Amino acid sequence: MPVRRGHVAPQNTFLDTIIRKFEGQSRKFIIANARVENCAVIYCNDGFCELCGYSRAEVMQRPCTCDFLHGPRTQRRAAAQIAQALLGAEERKVEIAFYRKDGSCFLCLVDVVPVKNEDGAVIMFILNFEVVMEKDMVGSPAHDTNHRGPPTSWLAPGRAKTFRLKLPALLALTARESSVRSGGAGGAGAPGAVVVDVDLTPAAPSSESLALDEVTAMDNHVAGLGPAEERRALVGPGSPPRSAPGQLPSPRAHSLNPDASGSSCSLARTRSRESCASVRRASSADDIEAMRAGVLPPPPRHASTGAMHPLRSGLLNSTSDSDLVRYRTISKIPQITLNFVDLKGDPFLASPTSDREIIAPKIKERTHNVTEKVTQVLSLGADVLPEYKLQAPRIHRWTILHYSPFKAVWDWLILLLVIYTAVFTPYSAAFLLKETEEGPPATECGYACQPLAVVDLIVDIMFIVDILINFRTTYVNANEEVVSHPGRIAVHYFKGWFLIDMVAAIPFDLLI
């Protein structure tokens, strides 16, 4: 008679799926529990143990900040960024110097990925580790590398530091407007667009060049630039800015003055950032001319202004700041037409079709709590990747769950009947059967004279019903998954307890 339990259901295979997918890609990662103190490590794979030199037993239950890997060259700011990422709910990448158990130093890129439950609360953290440099290539500990984003994938490793954006290309926007319009339909740009040429040739750093990471940081200074100062900065030398009595002219307006920039070969870094931020506020060169004239017309309804409409929906549905990093990277690809469009465009503009998908598509409701890094690593669709929660398995109709209350009560009843059979069957065979043979035949009273025979008949009927119930009862397979398919249940029961239950259900007393 089957006594099969499996009270692990309803099970959740999400954690096993993450481990299996990460292991298949030869990654070095740990999984931490966000619900406990210090976000203790609950799993670390073999790749991480080989990377740091510690065994799994030495890593388990330690804080996922990996303070046991810190050393003299470990930056405090990087460690603080990892700790801050564990307090938030967004994906974050941090470069930090770690030390192995043998004392060797290596520069590592740590990717902190939160995993949320159905309520939107962070319950786990996945920390992925990628070695960037070994100890002989690690720089000085005073050099802070965590304020910069990861290198873009479309640049060669040897040319990542030679990417320079020439400031004269930004200063000569109005001069290039006529050349853009003359391109017409034969050019790649839309009317009114501004073409910015980027020099990728390796050259020595000069005062006129600005690194790509500095251009990325310009967006942080746009908020500090007032509207009046932006307007004066875009007017140009024809209309000098008016300053109040006793007030000095704005240095932001002076930063885009061609006369002032041409007199000296070098520009201050602050002026460069502010000038680029001011130019980015204009949607095209037409807006710059309109600002000089004193009238700013409404933005025209053409394809170039609607190019950012799908980007707005993608940004609203993005799951991490990696989408913004990807957008900034692609927006700086050289030799393309940049349409400086305000994100607050007309909502009635139709979304044009684009061959290049900048932001990841909208994630469906079932995966809105899973970050983009987890979705990318697992390579699963929205119909396959579940949320991290207890999910009731989908069972067929008329199927009994093996952990249901009805099955528990039924098993206790069958257990009592088995005990009765084990006690009274030998007793009936030894004593009652002998008395029946010696006594007179009682054929007239039937079952009324033999109450134990009636009980034995009921017990046999219950055993037959138990066999039928076992054909529709779920079970737990070797992978700790609840199986509810009727065919698989029948095959599993035939290979197991079916023969024993059938022999126990045969009414031998009635056959004798």
Score class of each variant (00 low, 15 high):
R77T: 13
H143A: 09
G139Y: 06
P300A: 11
G183E: 05
P299L: 03
I19D: 01
T152G: 08
G53A: 01
K362W: 08
H309E: 11
D287N: 14
H309F: 14
P251N: 04
P300Y: 15
T174A: 14
T353W: 05
V36H: 08
H70C: 14
L225I: 03
T74D: 01
S140I: 11
T270V: 13
R20D: 06
L200R: 12
T371D: 04
A277H: 12
G246Y: 14
N146L: 15
C52E: 01
I126L: 11
V36I: 07
N317P: 06
N369M: 04
R273Q: 08
P150G: 15
P63T: 13
T201W: 04
D67P: 14
A142N: 15
W154H: 10
L296T: 04
P157G: 09
H70Y: 10
E274M: 13
D321V: 14
A282K: 14
I31S: 01
A277I: 15
A188D: 06
V196A: 04
S153Y: 04
E208F: 04
A32W: 01
S304H: 12
V377C: 06
G158W: 13
V36T: 13
E372I: 04
P347G: 13
K21W: 08
A228K: 11
L378E: 01
E289A: 11
R242G: 15
P237L: 12
E177K: 09
V295M: 08
E208P: 15
P249H: 13
Q75N: 15
R273H: 09
F68V: 01
P72M: 03
V113K: 09
S182T: 10
H254E: 15
P72E: 07
R35K: 06
C64H: 01
V113S: 14
A253P: 14
G192P: 05
D342C: 01
T329A: 13
A57M: 12
P157D: 13
I31Y: 01
H254L: 07
C265V: 12
P10G: 13
I358M: 09
G381F: 04
F129T: 01
D16I: 11
V215T: 09
A9V: 12
E118R: 06
V94P: 01
N146K: 06
S182D: 05
R252M: 07
M124G: 03
I359W: 01
A290F: 01
A282W: 13
A193Q: 06
V180Y: 15
D111N: 13
S272G: 05
R252V: 09
P300L: 07
S351I: 14
M218R: 13
M137V: 07
S278W: 08
S266Y: 07
G345E: 06
P361R: 15
E372G: 12
G103L: 08
V384L: 05
S379W: 08
S272R: 08
K28T: 12
L311F: 08
H7N: 03
C52S: 11
T201Y: 03
D321R: 14
Q75M: 05
G238I: 11
T337F: 09
N339E: 07
Y327D: 07
V41W: 01
G24I: 06
R4P: 15
L86N: 01
K364V: 13
H309P: 12
E230H: 03
S283G: 09
Y43E: 01
M137Q: 15
P249R: 08
C276S: 07
K101C: 01
L86T: 10
E130Q: 15
A244G: 09
V215E: 15
N317Q: 07
G88L: 14
L385I: 08
T371N: 03
A121W: 09
A268G: 11
S379P: 04
V377E: 03
R301K: 08
T17D: 08
R20H: 05
G149L: 11
A307T: 12
D197F: 04
S283T: 14
R77V: 15
E58T: 01
G306Y: 14
T65A: 08
E357T: 11
E289P: 08
H7C: 07
T216F: 06
I19Y: 01
K362R: 13
G120Q: 14
R20A: 11
D219A: 05
A211T: 13
D46F: 02
S206T: 15
V198N: 05
S379F: 05
L200K: 15
D199G: 06
G71M: 01
R35G: 11
M60V: 12
T353R: 14
E90K: 08
F98G: 01
R281Q: 04
A34L: 01
N33K: 04
V222R: 05
M308W: 05
